[in-house]
Amino acid sequence: MPEIEKECKVISKVPGSLKGLKLLNLDCGDITATVDLVQEIDIFDEGNEVTFVVSRDKPNYTPNDFCAHGYLFYEKKSDDAFVSLISLYGLLVKIVSNSGIISSGILNMMDHVYVCIKKLN
């Protein structure tokens, strides 16, 4: 059972601040996520419906999905929201939530996690 599994929509894909970097913005209802992507793994378009999964165990995935693993290494409250960062050995996944992932006890600092974004259709 994944720790986080949300149905989300790709609301935008914008250039990141590094050459070749793109930021995928996901709206998942109570959370938003920003995922670093580079050309080799850029399989999403704006408007795509996706499932966003964060899990301690390795989820099932296909070559049509994006799936990677890394560590949850940062969480801070800024303004009214919690910002949590997962590093996929460099590429970052930034999750903004109301209750936080570590603070709400879903995951712990430096938990090894899998992050997958699966296209719904």
């Binding site: 994006f66 890394g70 050995y89």
Partner: peptide
Amino acid sequence: GEPAILAPNEYYTGKQIVS
């Protein structure tokens, strides 16, 4: 170890190598 990126293709990252 397992590549950092598993799908759509398997990729290691530079940071993984350094680690």
